[in-house]
Simulated assay, not measured.
Amino acid sequence: MDDRLPIAILIKILSNHIKRNLDTAASFGPLYNITGTQIQIIGYIYHSPKDDIFQKDIETKFSIRRSTATGILQLMEKNELIKREPVEYDARLKKIILTEKALAVSRQAHHNLTDLEEQMTKGISPEELAVFRSLIWKMKTNLEELV
């Protein structure tokens, strides 16, 4: 352990390890060829308390431009992860529906994340994790003040 490394660098190192582990776990099975962003969108739709999710919701939630969201959702549709269906109350809107393939992706991603979390927190007490979570949220809040 190097106590001289800046916190931002330590977080980046940890983030790299998390990404590498998740990428390795996703290199086969239902997650094969599914991007992290697509997995996050599937998770957002799956866990959303809203009945209908639209492209605008994706744009807002992930802070992405309309053109970026369009490209991601078109690829997800092509790969049979989502369907877009019109809603009765506004012919211009199409709600995003997860397919069975996307539900399998969601289950596998949840399993991989649970396994990773268990590995990451091995030997760390609940009290230490509570402090860690609190500090992470405080740092996030501090950084939000900059923008």
Rank of each mutant, 00 (worst) to 15 (best):
D2T: 11
D2F: 13
R4Q: 09
L5F: 09
I7R: 01
I9C: 00
L10E: 14
L10Y: 02
I11C: 05
I13K: 06
I13N: 04
L14V: 15
L14D: 05
L14I: 14
L14A: 14
H17W: 01
K19C: 07
R20L: 11
N21M: 10
N21K: 14
L22D: 07
L22T: 14
L22V: 13
D23N: 12
T24A: 14
T24H: 11
A26P: 00
S27G: 09
G29T: 06
G29D: 05
G29F: 04
P30S: 13
L31Q: 07
Y32P: 01
N33M: 10
T37N: 09
T37C: 09
I41T: 11
I41P: 14
I42R: 13
G43D: 15
I45A: 07
Y46L: 05
H47L: 07
D51K: 01
I53N: 12
F54I: 12
F54M: 08
Q55W: 01
K56W: 12
K56N: 07
I58S: 02
I58F: 09
T60E: 15
S63G: 08
I64E: 14
R66Y: 15
S67E: 15
L73C: 05
L73N: 03
L73K: 04
Q74W: 10
L75R: 14
M76K: 14
E77V: 00
E80H: 15
L81F: 13
L81G: 08
L81V: 03
I82M: 06
K83V: 01
K83W: 10
E85D: 09
P86L: 13
P86Q: 09
V87G: 06
E88T: 04
E88V: 08
Y89R: 15
A91S: 15
A91Y: 01
K94N: 14
K95E: 04
I96C: 11
I96P: 15
I97H: 07
K101H: 13
K101C: 06
A102M: 02
L103K: 15
V105K: 08
S106N: 15
R107T: 11
A109L: 03
A109V: 01
H110D: 09
H111F: 13
D115Y: 06
D115N: 12
D115L: 14
D115T: 12
L116I: 08
E117A: 11
E117L: 10
E117Q: 03
E118C: 05
M120C: 11
T121L: 07
T121G: 01
K122P: 00
P126W: 03
P126S: 06
E127T: 12
L129F: 00
L129T: 01
A130L: 09
A130E: 15
A130H: 03
V131Q: 03
V131R: 02
F132C: 04
R133Y: 13
R133K: 08
L135V: 00
I136Y: 08
K138R: 10
M139S: 07
M139Y: 12
K140Y: 14
K140I: 05
K140A: 10
K140E: 09
L143R: 08
L143S: 08
E144H: 04
E145M: 02
E145A: 08
